[in-house]
Amino acid sequence: MSRSPSAGIGPATMPTTPDTIGDPSPILRLDDVVKHFGGRRGRPPVRAVDGVSLSVGRGQTVGLVGESGSGKSTLGRLALRLLEPTTGTVTFDGSDISRLRRRELARLRCRMQLVFQDPLSSFSPRMTIKEVLTEPMTVHGIGTPKTRLARCRELLDLVGLPSHALERYPHQFSGGQAQRIGIARALTTDPDLIVCDEAVSALDVSVQAQILNLLREVQRELGLSYLFIAHDLNVVRYMSDHISVMYLGQVVESGPADALMDSAMHPYTQALVESVPSLDQRGELRAPLVGEIPSPTRPPAGCRFHTRCPRRFEPCDQAAPELLQIGERSAACHLLTTDEETRA
């Protein structure tokens, strides 16, 4: 039975999702990807992404979560090679796209698409919805004018909009309707992978629920893979088979969605979970995460989270912890390799 999010979503009401990440040939794989911006004239570079590895299985959803400034959106654009990695490799369906030439990359573009946070800002206000939807097919040489128009009508029906919407302009639609059009546009080229970058964060909660259900229905029907980027942990848990948590350009914890949310191993993940707005039995809000994320131009030495970590101890400001594999999960924290007697 389909799962339906609602305004009352909370960890206790979330159904479980089986972890099926582990496809021997994932549709997307990032290996030790680094992206630095600037760094000229003696200025330190912005270390937006600093050695991230993850994979997205075919037909599965990997959620990417973290605070603003953690590098999530940059990683999503690196996955599509909308940004060039400083170092590292990005592999899509077995092809290392980080080294493909422009013409070779263009052949794969139609199989990788992006759903934006604010679809209206990505639409030309002078184009009708028909023009918005047919443009990607025209660019990639897909079909004829007649078949493109038929495809537009088919996709509008799929996302729950009437065909007469084709003659209207973007400003004539609500935020939720515009996001449906954004999803339809991403589907025009029949992709295998869609990166959803904060795709519901600008919408009202009730509209969020509708868009999330739509994304899940489209995924089931078309066999899509998602890299789902968001800061709302409840939304990420609902959508994802697997979650990776980013902090200051690095993945600090990763694992099956329900296991990670129910028993987070890294103090940062624990703080994020505790920061989810939710009323306990006494009617009190849980304590929020304290402090500001440091500047990515000068990340702290050692563990990057130690400046905000309530459980920090001697090694934390001296040595960066390794990302340890523990069963199906992984985390980078000195607490996992040091016993209680040493920490006391």
Rank of each mutant, 00 (worst) to 15 (best):
L248E: 11
M239N: 06
Q172P: 02
R237N: 11
L227W: 03
D232A: 09
Y247E: 06
S201W: 13
S206R: 05
I211T: 12
L166S: 01
A178G: 10
G175P: 01
D232L: 08
M239R: 08
H231A: 13
M246G: 13
T188D: 08
G223E: 11
L215I: 02
A184M: 06
S225G: 00
I194F: 10
E221R: 14
D241I: 06
Y247T: 05
I229N: 11
M239H: 02
V236C: 10
R237D: 07
V235E: 02
D204Y: 04
G176Y: 12
Q219D: 00
A184Y: 03
G176I: 13
D232M: 12
P191S: 09
Q172D: 05
V245M: 10
R237H: 13
R185L: 04
L203I: 01
Y169N: 00
L233E: 08
P191N: 07
S254I: 03
A230G: 09
M246N: 14
G176S: 10
R220N: 14
T189D: 06
Q177L: 08
M246P: 12
T189Q: 05
V207D: 10
E167N: 15
E167F: 08
Q179F: 02
I183M: 04
R185A: 07
S174C: 13
E217I: 13
N213M: 15
E221W: 01
N234W: 09
